[in-house]
C-alpha cells in the first residue's frame, strides 16, 4: 500500500515500507532526540541516588534511573529500524548536532527535585507520549507503549515523594515548594513553543507523528496538574491559574519562552556538565567495548 493511503487509513508505517525521505528524517530526528533525552535524563536524578534519604527511596530511584536507560535503548532501537546506527546517533549527540530535552539542563539541587521531576517532568512527558503510542510509525509507537506503561510508576513515585515532604516537617515542606517553584515553568516549556511559532508541528501532524498541538497538550497537562497540586498542598508559582468555566479549562499565565531558547542554545545551568558527563562515560568505556568486540572476533575466528 502506498504511504499516503496508509496514513489516510490511519494505518501504520513499518520499517521496510517506502516512505518519503522527509518523513524518515523527521522521525530519526525526533526519536533520536527522545532517546538522547532519556539517557541525559539519567543524570539529574542519578545525582541523588547516592544520597537518597532512605534505603527504600534509594532502591526506587535506582530502578527509575535504570528504566530511563532502558527507555533510551527501546528508542534507539526504534530509530535503528529507519536505517541509522545507534553509534552514529550518539556521536551526533556528543558532537552537539542532535538535541535532548532542555529540562535536563536544570540542576537537581535538593532531594525534593527528584520528586518534582517525577511528578511534573515525567507527568509532562506522559502527556506528550501517550498520543505517540498511536504514532504512524510502528516501531516508535510500540516503543512508546512500553515506555508509557513504565513511566506511570515514575510519576507516582515523584508524587509520593512530594506528598511525603509536603506533609512532613516545615523544612521538608519548604524543600518541596521550592522544587515545584523551580520546575513548574520549565515543565510547561517541555511542550515546545506555542503553536504559532512551532516550525515542525503542522507537517508532523499531517504525517500522524504528532496527534495534538503543543498548546493543546500543555493545556491538558495544566488541567491535570492543578488539582493534584491541591492534594499535595503545594502552590504552583503562577498567580494567573484559575478555573475558566466558559472554556472548561484552567487559565494560566504566559510562558516566557526566551529562557527556553537560551537553554536550547546551550546557556542553561547544566548544559556543559551534562554533555561532559555523557562524553566521559562514552570515552572511558571505549576500551571495554573494544575488548568485547575483539573477544567476539577471536571466538568467531576460532569457530571458523
Amino acid at each position: 500500500m502506498h504511504f499516503e493511503e496508509l496514513l489516510a487509513g490511519d494505518g501504520r508505517v513499518e520499517p521496510r515500507d517506502e516512505m518519503p525521505d522527509a518523513y524518515r528524517r523527521t522521525l530519526v530526528r525526533q526519536i533520536a532526540q527522545h532517546a538522547h533525552s532519556e539517557i541525559i535524563g539519567m543524570q539529574p536524578e542519578g545525582n541523588w541516588i547516592s544520597r537518597a534519604p532512605s534505603l527504600r527511596r534509594k532502591a526506587i530511584l535506582m530502578a527509575k534511573v535504570q528504566d530511563e536507560a532502558g527507555h533510551g535503548l527501546y528508542l534507539y532501537a526504534a530509530a535503528e529500524t529507519l536505517g541509522v546506527d545507534r553509534a552514529d546517533l550518539l556521536d551526533q549527540l556528543h558532537g552537539g548536532r542532535q538535541k535532548y530535552s532542555s529540562i535536563f539542563n536544570y540542576p537537581t539541587l535538593t532531594w525534593a527535585d527528584v520528586g518534582a521531576i517525577g511528578w511534573l517532568v515525567d507527568g509532562a512527558a506522559i502527556v506528550n507520549q501517550v498520543p505517540l503510542c498511536r504514532c504512524s510509525y510502528g516501531p516508535y509507537a510500540r516503543a512508546m507503549v512500553r515506555i508509557c506503561k513504565e513511566e506511570s510508576f515514575h510519576q507516582r513515585q515523584g508524587f509520593e515523594i512530594l506528598h511525603t515532604l509536603a506533609h512532613g516537617a516545615p523544612a521538608q515542606k519548604a524543600m518541596a515548594q521550592d522544587a515545584v517553584d523551580r520546575y513548574w515553568w520549565p515543565s510547561l516549556m517541555m511542550f515546545g513553543p506555542p503553536d504559532d511559532d512551532s516550525t515542525h508541528s503542522a507537517q508532523s501532524m499531517a504525517w500522524g507523528i504528532k496527534r495534538f498541538s503543543n498548546d493543546d497538550l500543555r493545556q491538558r497537562f495544566v488541567d491535570m496538574t492543578v488539582p493534584q497540586a491541591e492534594v499535595l498542598g503545594l502552590t504552583l508559582p503562577d498567580p494567573e491559574i484559575r478555573w475558566n468555566d466558559e472554556r472548561g479549562h484552567y487559565d494560566f499565565g504566559a510562558v516566557d519562552f526566551t529562557e527556553l531558547f537560551e537553554v536550547i542554545k546551550g546557556n542553561g545551568p547544566c548544559n556543559r556538565e551534562r554533555m561532559a558527563h555523557r562524553v566521559a562515560a562514552h570515552e572511558d568505556g571505549a576500551w571495554v567495548r573494544e575488548a568485547a568486540a575483539a573477544y567476539s572476533a577471536k571466538r568467531a575466528e576460532a569457530a571458523a
Binding site: 539517557i39 543524570q43 542519578g46 541516588i49 535506582m62 536507560a69 534507539y76 558527563h277 562515560a281
Partner: peptide, 8 residues
C-alpha cells in the same frame, strides 16, 4: 548508572 561503557 549513567557511566557504564554501553547502555545495556
Amino acid at each position: 548508572i549513567s557511566r557504564a561503557p554501553e547502555l545495556e
